[in-house]
């Protein structure tokens, strides 16, 4: 099945598909993180819960400059409504829609219409600074919008190499975000390390699982008890959990191989080489080994590797080298 002439993909479109998927996935995950943080704080964690959202997204410097202290109000504004913050949901949705606009010649009409309506509705919903009591409602709306996008895309988007670029973007962002979701627990937990295994600690892991829509699946795998190690292990390493890092890496690998052998894109092998460390680390380590070496350090490293894979994608497939 070599590529036919008509099915070539413009490099710029590959880039836009990759980013469209990333931005939509980012919106969904950020909504999950804000929702779980609101739960943390409501259930007794102090306001540092909000600060940790800023920390795990590595946005501290920009946040401090603009807002100073991390409170529910400032963090929600920074991540929900602040269009000047490039990592906010508003900015991500805007970027998703602009990428979709560029891609309109190749995505389905239904995909565009949904993103367009989703964006406009979200814009209305987030016109005012949201209060903590709105968070759950807004985040549910955002998750649903992203899921509708995913469903329409799955059902209508033509499966040529564009689909692979889209999927790689999606799983790369998802893996990265899962690592951050787990990391938020680490940050929140850190000040009270003595509490490990205590009631509050378990509550928080519970919330993280629910934020990742993994609670019931986790129960099926571990019907009795819940330890930090089992939850972290599940979120990071479970092969069947759709948001695990192992699953993300596996999907990225599959689609890269499809680009390489199915569409004859030799650059895919270069990206696969850059994925290899991540694949090995995710496949070959147990959660106990990871915890022993430091969960936070591991997650940090995972995020660096995802960054490297994304950068390699850009270099190989769409960054224009100035031939001068």
């Amino acid at each position: 099945m070599m590529h036919r002439g008509g099915l070539l993909l413009l490099s710029r479109y590959a880039e836009c598909l990759f980013w469209l998927a990333r931005y939509m996935e980012r919106v969904e995950n950020l909504a999950r993180i804000l929702e779980v943080t609101e739960t943390f704080v409501r259930h007794g964690a102090d306001q540092s819960g909000w600060r940790s959202v800023v920390q795990i997204n590595a946005d501290e410097e920009r946040f401090l400059e603009k807002y100073g202290t991390a409170t529910a109000e400032t963090v929600l504004r920074f991540y929900l409504t602040d269009r000047e913050n490039p990592t906010s949901i508003s900015a991500s949705l805007f970027a998703a829609r602009e990428n979709a606009r560029t891609l309109r010649p190749m995505i389905s009409t239904e995909m565009w219409a949904q993103i367009n309506m989703f964006y406009n509705r979200a814009r209305e919903l987030m016109a005012d600074t949201p209060r903590p009591s709105d968070v759950s409602r807004i985040c549910s709306f955002l998750k649903e919008g992203c899921q509708a996008h995913a469903g329409i895309t799955e059902g209508t988007f033509f499966r040529d190499q564009g689909w692979a670029f889209y999927s790689i973007g999606k799983y790369l962002e998802r893996g990265d975000q899962t690592s951050r979701l787990v990391d938020i627990k680490y940050h929140t937990l850190f000040p009270s390390v003595a509490d490990v295994g205590g009631a509050q600690d378990v509550n928080q892991w519970h919330a993280v699982l629910r934020a990742a829509a993994g609670y019931h699946a986790f129960r099926r795998v571990y019907p009795s008890g819940m330890t930090p190690a089992s939850v972290a292990g599940f979120l990071l390493l479970n092969h069947s959990f759709p948001r695990s890092i192992v699953q993300s890496v596996h999907q990225i690998e599959t689609y890269l191989m499809q680009l390489g052998s199915g569409y004859g894109l030799r650059g895919a092998n270069t990206v696969l080489e850059h994925l290899e460390d991540l694949r090995a680390a995710a496949m070959d380590q147990t959660i106990d080994e990871i915890l022993a070496r430091g969960l936070h350090e591991f997650l940090d490293w995972v995020q660096m590797r995802f960054l490297d894979v994304a950068d390699t994608m850009a270099n190989v497939f769409w960054r224009v080298k100035d031939t001068g």
Binding site: L10, S11, G267
Partner: peptide
């Protein structure tokens, strides 16, 4: 879309060896 052809911008095209080319993933 109606023609089933790529929508390109100037930056997607390049002239080399007396021909016009478009930049694709391949």
């Amino acid at each position: 879309r109606e023609m089933g052809v790529p929508l390109v911008e100037g930056r997607d095209l390049i002239v080399e060896d007396g021909r016009v080319w478009m930049r694709t993933t391949a």
